[in-house]
């Protein structure tokens, strides 16, 4: 039962979280500004300045939110599993917090990819949803995020939650290449990759640049919210440590 006091000692032994608090305090306003500017410019290009598609007309504009959301869903999962592994192996307290703070952001990106994909699929494919390999594996990714969040907070002692959820995150990592290559390995309704592929992008520059701008905006948003959430997690840790010190004298 005295594990919590070990937690307190560990918090003070590692200076990292405090160092993070210091430099993230200076970084957050910059990330906020960069995210705001990228979204303003990116949305103008996505909705106004970019051309319609020769096949899909104006509906192609959904791509500018759908594709960055899907990329970030995969990026966040990889980052979360990587941070969780570092936390698991090297007991790095900041790594655990980064993994925990990334999960809800990744889940939000996955939800966005699923919903905007449905809104794009209805007019183009003729259906909101099909159970093909791509769509199904992305739905599995969403459930992995939810499972991670639930497991992480299922224990009274945060260290145990971090360990259990880290193992789930690592097991779920096999889903990431399955999502990426599902469209190459099997017949799917979803088309293969347009940008990240061996032959080079199959998307015209006038549409590729707005897409990359929006992807940059999404990435910057992730680091902004991540910094805020990790600060929040450190605060929660400090509150917990203070309460325990009061309780145990």
């Amino acid at each position: 039962m005295f594990a919590p006091s070990g937690q307190v000692a560990r918090m003070s032994r590692f200076a990292n979280p405090n160092r993070f608090l210091r430099w993230s305090d200076r970084l957050v306003p910059w990330l906020a500004t960069v995210t705001g500017v990228l979204f303003a410019v990116g949305l103008y290009w996505a909705l106004v300045a970019s051309p319609p598609d020769y096949q899909q007309g104006e509906s192609v504009r959904i791509m500018y939110v759908h594709v960055p959301a899907a990329w970030m869903a995969l990026f966040c999962y990889t980052a979360m599993a990587g941070a969780a592994a570092v936390g698991l192996i090297w007991k790095h307290p900041l790594a655990d917090l980064i993994a925990k703070a990334t999960a809800p952001i990744g889940a939000a990106f996955t939800l966005l990819a699923l919903v905007t994909g449905a809104l794009w699929g209805k007019p183009m494919w003729g259906t909101w949803w099909v159970w093909d390999a791509r769509l199904t594996s992305v739905l599995v990714l969403f459930f992995l995020y939810l499972g991670y969040i639930a497991l992480n907070s299922a224990f009274d002692e945060p260290g145990r939650g971090a360990r259990a959820s880290a193992i789930l995150a690592l097991v779920g990592l096999v889903n990431v290449p399955i999502i990426k290559f599902s469209v190459d390995w099997w017949y799917t309704l979803h088309q293969p990759a347009s940008v990240i592929r061996l032959e080079g992008p199959a998307i015209h520059a006038s549409m590729l640049w707005p897409l990359l701008l929006m992807a940059a905006a999404f990435t910057s948003y992730y680091f902004w919210v991540l910094a805020v959430r990790v600060r929040g997690e450190i605060m929660a840790h400090k509150i917990r440590a203070l309460r325990l010190r009061q309780a145990y004298g």
Binding site: D53, Q56, W125, G126, V130, P192, S194, A202, I203, H204
Partner: peptide, 18 residues
């Protein structure tokens, strides 16, 4: 009883296609 469209990975403006 159901027909769905599938599109390829190419995106370009109509003028470029033309």
């Amino acid at each position: 009883d159901e027909v769905l469209a599938r599109h390829d990975e190419t995106y370009m403006p109509p003028e470029v296609a033309e």
